[in-house]
Structure formats: C-alpha cells, structure tokens
C-alpha cells in the first residue's frame, strides 16, 4: 500500500454522507494491509451493552450476534484493554492480565471459527462514550505490519473515527437525558446524602428530590439511584 492510497481514503472520508459507504470503503482499503474485518464502537464498561455502542459493524455475519448474545465484551481481553489505553496496539500485545484469562482465551478461540485470528486496535476519543475503539481483524495467525503500514493504518483509523463523529447527529445531545436539577440531586447522592439531606441543601421538599431521582432512574432505565449515579458518571454527565 502506498501513502497516496491513504490520503485518497482521507479525502473520500469527508464525502461519505452515511456510515454504510464509509464502512465499505474502509474495509476495502484496509484489505490491502491484511485486514478483512473491522468494528468501530464505544468501549463498553462494567456490563454496558455493546450493541447500541457500535458505530461501524464490519464483523463477519454470525460473530457479532454470538459476541453480543454471549456477552463476550465483559471477558474479551482486547475489549477490556481498549478501555484502558489511549494508544494503538496489536491484540497480541494485550497484557496477560486481561488476555490470559479463561474467558478471553475462549473468546479468541471462538473467533477463529469466523476467520478472526489476530488484529490491531486504535482507541480514540468519543463524545458519547468513555472512549471508542476501531479494531481491525485479520485471518492471519499473527498480523504483521511494517512501521510504515502501522502509520498508514492509524492515519486511516483516525480519519474514519472523525468522520463517524461528524455523521452522528447531535440531536440527542441537545438536551441530554438529565435536567440540571436531576444532575444536582445525583451529585448529592454521590456525596452520600439522603433525600432528606439533599432536600435541605437544595431548599426543596423531600418529595421533589425523590421525584428528580425517580426521573433520573427512568432516564437510564435502571432500578436504583446508585445505578443512576454510576450511569451518569459513566456518560460524563456529572463529575462527583
């Protein structure tokens, strides 16, 4: 692959107006570097569901369904490590602490049935999730990239990531799921205050405080205020 192929891809990136053609273009381009499949997704944390976080799904048919149904994200070392580093990495270089577990080895074993044996991942900032990762998969036993190819791949990954952010509409971010009051109530809950204490701090009735907590729980579809606090922190809506 020559550098101008990369810059041509970058140029095409900003012309794609939908995710489908962008995915197809990226898949076709990185095939030249030995990658047949890819996924661009928010990195799930602590039991978050993967499926709604996926932005480009270029995994083999069947593998994505299996991965989601079996909740592989929770044990897959590549997925776990994607939340812990800001730097691009080879799957093979995921520290043993996360890759050498029974669960992670099982995921890697199942992936081979779908022609996924090795890969390279590029973590990136996400404005919606903890962070994103663009993961490229290869059917070679170990994918080797020259330093130049690595540079080419990262460059394309970054531009694909930028384009995806540009394509995602920000309408959902216009208001955000929580009101300022709901955030305030969750912040005091995070600080260990009871509804009654929070009501005194904010000069509201306890009933109103409880109502705001209820709304926050509903917004996230969770059962307890603790879960709502965790979800709000995870989505970077509050900063206790």
């Amino acid at each position: 692959m020559i550098d101008s192929d990369v810059f041509d891809f970058v140029e095409r990136c900003r012309k794609h107006t939908a995710t489908g053609p962008l995915l197809g273009d990226l898949l076709e381009t990185v095939r030249n570097l030995g990658f047949e499949h890819l996924i661009l997704s928010g990195v799930p944390l602590g039991g978050q569901k993967l499926a709604p976080m996926v932005e480009l799904n270029g995994w083999p048919a069947g593998w994505f369904e299996r991965y989601v149904a079996a909740e592989h994200a929770a044990v897959d070392g590549v997925c776990i490590y994607s939340a812990k580093t800001l730097k691009p990495f080879f799957w093979a270089d995921v520290p043993a602490k996360w890759s050498d577990t029974e669960g992670s080895r099982r995921v890697a074993g199942e992936a081979t049935e779908f022609g996924i044996l090795s890969g390279f991942a590029v973590p990136m900032l996400s404005v919606h999730h903890w962070q994103s990762v663009l993961s490229f998969a290869s059917s070679q036993k170990s994918c080797s990239l020259s330093p130049r190819q690595q540079v080419q791949l990262v460059t394309m990954a970054v531009y694909a990531g930028m384009s995806i952010q540009a394509l995602s509409n920000n309408d959902d971010g216009d208001e955000g799921p929580l009101t300022d009051r709901e955030k305030e109530v969750l912040l005091w809950a995070a600080a260990g205050k009871t509804s009654s204490e929070t009501s005194q701090i904010l000069g509201l009735t306890e009933r109103t405080v409880k109502w705001h907590s209820t709304r926050a729980r509903e917004a996230f579809g969770v059962a307890t205020t603790t879960q709502a606090v965790v979800e709000a922190v995870r989505r970077r809506l509050i900063h206790p």
Binding site: M124, G161, M162, A166
Partner: peptide, 8 residues
Amino acid sequence: YFMPHHGA
C-alpha cells in the same frame, strides 16, 4: 486520539 473531537 483527540481528532474525533474535530469531527464531532
């Protein structure tokens, strides 16, 4: 790492 911010 931060380039997607420009995209957003």
